[in-house]
Amino acid sequence: MATGGRRGAAAAPLLVAVAALLLGAAGHLYPGEVCPGMDIRNNLTRLHELENCSVIEGHLQILLMFKTRPEDFRDLSFPKLIMITDYLLLFRVYGLESLKDLFPNLTVIRGSRLFFNYALVIFEMVHLKELGLYNLMNITRGSVRIEKNNELCYLATIDWSRILDSVEDNYIVLNKDDNEECGDICPGTAKGKTNCPATVINGQFVERCWTHSHCQKVCPTICKSHGCTAEGLCCHSECLGNCSQPDDPTKCVACRNFYLDGRCVETCPPPYYHFQDWRCVNFSFCQDLHHKCKNSRRQGCHQYVIHNNKCIPECPSGYTMNSSNLLCTPCLGPCPKVCHLLEGEKTIDSVTSAQELRGCTVINGSLIINIRGGNNLAAELEANLGLIEEISGYLKIRRSYALVSLSFFRKLRLIRGETLEIGNYSFYALDNQNLRQLWDWSKHNLTITQGKLFFHYNPKLCLSEIHKMEEVSGTKGRQERNDIALKTNGDQASCENELLKFSYIRTSFDKI
C-alpha cells in the first residue's frame, strides 16, 4: 500500500482533458527560462521544448504516446526543470519506465491550478516501474492521483506527508504495488545497510526511497516546507523545498512566496507586481503582455491589467481597466465587458449561442446573426445582446428569417469595421425574408467608422429604411451602385405612401 494514499474509496472516473512563447529569463536562482504550460502528445517531438525550461508557468501534460519505446527515452533528460506552477499529468506514455532521468531536479509542483483537485496525476502508464522524482520536495496545493499503472512499484516507500501538507485526498490505487509483488529495495538494503531515512506512518517504520538508488530526502521537522541542505541544516524561511546553503534567500532552489532578481522575498516591493503567484514583474512586463494579447485571437491570451499590486489576466467583477495605466478602477454604474472572439468572429444561430455573449459591452471581433427560429426570440436576444455598444469588426445579418427588427441591439452605437466582410463591408444584410426595420432612427444613433453597407434580398425592408441608415451611420456616399439592390429590397412591402385627393359631386333626387 502506498504510504499516505487512500484505498478502496469510491472515486469519480478520471477524465483526461485534452506555445513556446518565453516569458522571460528567471535569473540567477533558476538555471534556465520560464516556459508556458505545455500539452505534449502523440510523439516526442515537442518534448524537446523543455530543454531550457527551469519553470513551467502553467501545467505540463505528457500523454497518448503509443509508439514510443524505452530506448526512445534513454537520452532524454531535462535537468534544468525545477518547478511547475500548476500540475504534472502523465497518461498512456508507452515505453517510459521512470522519471528519474527525465526530470531529475523537479523540486516543486505548486498546484496553482489543479487537474480535478490533483497536482500530480500518473494514470495508465503501462510501462512505468517507478516514479523516480527523487528531488520532489513540495506539492504546495492539491493532491496526488496514481492509478492503474500495472508495473509501478516504489510507492509504499514514499512518505507523501513530507511532500504535501495533507495526504487525506491522495488516491493511489490499482498499481502493481497493490499486489505486494514489488519487493522494493532501498539503497544499501541488499548489503544489509540502512542508507535512507525511515519514518513512521500508520504504525509502520519504513525506509523512504524513490528507487533502488535514490533515497527520499527527509528534512528535520523544524525546517517545515522550506527544505534543508545535504547536511540537514534548514533553508531560509522564504525558500521552498530545498537550498544549497542554509538561511540564505539567494540560495533557495525555489521560493515559498515570490522570486525577485535572484532572491526569494515575502512580497513584491514597489515598483514590482505579483505575477502568477510566484514571481515579481515590473510595469513594462505587464504592459507588454497586455499589448501582445490586445489584437491576438490565441486562446488563453489575456490583456493583463494591474489590481491590488498584482498583474492579473482581467479586472475583477465591479472594476474596469483604465487604459492609460492598466489599473483596475471601480465602475460607475454597470461595468464594461470586452469579449474577445477566439477566431475573430462568432455566429449567433440560437439563443444558446447568444447567451455566451451575455453582459458583453464591447465585441472584439465580428458578429454573424443567422437565426431561423426560436421561442420568445426578441426578448431572449435583447437579454443577451442588448448591452453590446461596440463591435470592432463587422455585423452580418444573414438568412435570419425569424427577425423582424434589429432593435434587440438596443445599445449598439459603434461598428468600427477594423475587419470587413469580403474585404469591403462593415454591415452586411443578406436574404432576411421578414426583416422590416433596422432601428427606430428617431431614437437610435449608430456610427460606422469604416467599410460599406450591403443589402440584398431583404424583400420587406424598404429602401427608405436603408437610406436612413446611410445618413445616420455616416456611410452615405461610400456605397457603390450594386451594394444596395434596388429590386430585391422592399419588393414585397408597401414602401411608397402617396396622399390621394378626392373630389365629389353631391346629387339628390331633384338636383344634379
Rank of each mutant, 00 (worst) to 15 (best):
residue 52 N to V: 14
residue 201 I to M: 12
residue 29 L to D: 00
residue 277 D to E: 14
residue 104 P to G: 02
residue 70 P to A: 09
residue 190 A to H: 12
residue 132 G to F: 00
residue 164 L to D: 05
residue 125 M to Y: 00
residue 152 L to T: 03
residue 222 I to V: 13
residue 244 S to R: 13
residue 88 L to R: 01
residue 118 Y to L: 04
residue 110 R to T: 05
residue 239 C to L: 00
residue 48 H to Q: 14
residue 162 R to Q: 14
residue 257 N to F: 04
residue 58 G to M: 00
residue 43 N to V: 06
residue 193 K to S: 05
residue 207 E to W: 14
residue 239 C to I: 00
residue 52 N to G: 06
residue 140 T to A: 12
residue 87 Y to E: 00
residue 58 G to C: 01
residue 197 P to Y: 09
residue 116 F to M: 11
residue 174 L to S: 11
residue 204 Q to W: 04
residue 308 N to E: 14
residue 150 N to K: 08
residue 242 N to S: 09
residue 89 L to A: 01
residue 38 M to D: 02
residue 125 M to R: 00
residue 93 V to I: 04
residue 197 P to K: 10
residue 257 N to Y: 07
residue 68 T to K: 13
residue 329 T to K: 02
residue 282 N to R: 15
residue 184 D to M: 15
residue 55 V to I: 13
residue 205 F to W: 15
residue 98 S to W: 02
residue 175 N to P: 13
residue 124 E to V: 02
residue 285 F to M: 09
residue 223 C to P: 01
residue 281 V to L: 03
residue 41 R to Y: 00
residue 214 H to D: 03
residue 314 E to R: 11
residue 333 G to Y: 12
residue 74 R to V: 14
residue 160 W to M: 09
residue 129 K to L: 04
residue 263 R to I: 12
residue 193 K to G: 10
residue 294 K to T: 14
residue 242 N to T: 09
residue 31 P to V: 06
residue 99 L to I: 12
residue 122 I to V: 07
residue 75 D to N: 15
residue 203 G to F: 06
residue 203 G to I: 04
residue 276 Q to D: 15
residue 129 K to D: 03
residue 243 C to G: 00
residue 45 T to V: 12
residue 243 C to I: 01
residue 195 N to H: 10
residue 227 G to L: 05
residue 262 G to S: 11
residue 131 L to P: 01
residue 196 C to R: 13
residue 308 N to L: 13
residue 103 F to M: 04
residue 252 C to D: 00
residue 155 L to S: 09
residue 198 A to M: 05
residue 327 L to N: 11
residue 202 N to T: 10
residue 242 N to A: 10
residue 335 C to Y: 05
residue 71 E to W: 02
residue 70 P to L: 10
residue 33 E to N: 08
residue 85 T to W: 01
residue 154 Y to P: 14
residue 300 G to Y: 05
residue 165 D to T: 08
residue 115 F to T: 07
residue 175 N to T: 13
residue 80 K to C: 04
residue 315 C to R: 00
residue 107 T to K: 15
residue 323 S to A: 12
residue 305 V to C: 07
residue 91 F to G: 15
residue 83 M to W: 02
residue 190 A to E: 07
residue 178 D to V: 11
residue 202 N to A: 09
residue 303 Q to W: 05
residue 36 P to M: 12
residue 58 G to Q: 00
residue 68 T to Y: 15
residue 300 G to V: 08
residue 169 D to F: 08
residue 273 Y to H: 11
residue 277 D to A: 11
residue 212 H to K: 15
residue 190 A to G: 09
residue 267 T to E: 05
residue 38 M to I: 10
residue 156 A to V: 09
residue 292 K to P: 07
residue 72 D to T: 10
residue 174 L to M: 13
residue 134 Y to E: 06
residue 53 C to S: 00
residue 124 E to Y: 14
residue 68 T to R: 13
residue 109 I to D: 00
residue 198 A to C: 13
residue 214 H to T: 11
residue 85 T to F: 02
residue 219 C to E: 02
residue 313 P to W: 15
residue 187 P to N: 12
residue 324 S to I: 01
residue 155 L to A: 06
residue 244 S to W: 10
residue 96 L to I: 04
residue 191 K to R: 09
residue 223 C to L: 02
residue 60 L to C: 02
residue 154 Y to S: 09
residue 51 E to L: 09
residue 162 R to V: 10
residue 122 I to N: 00
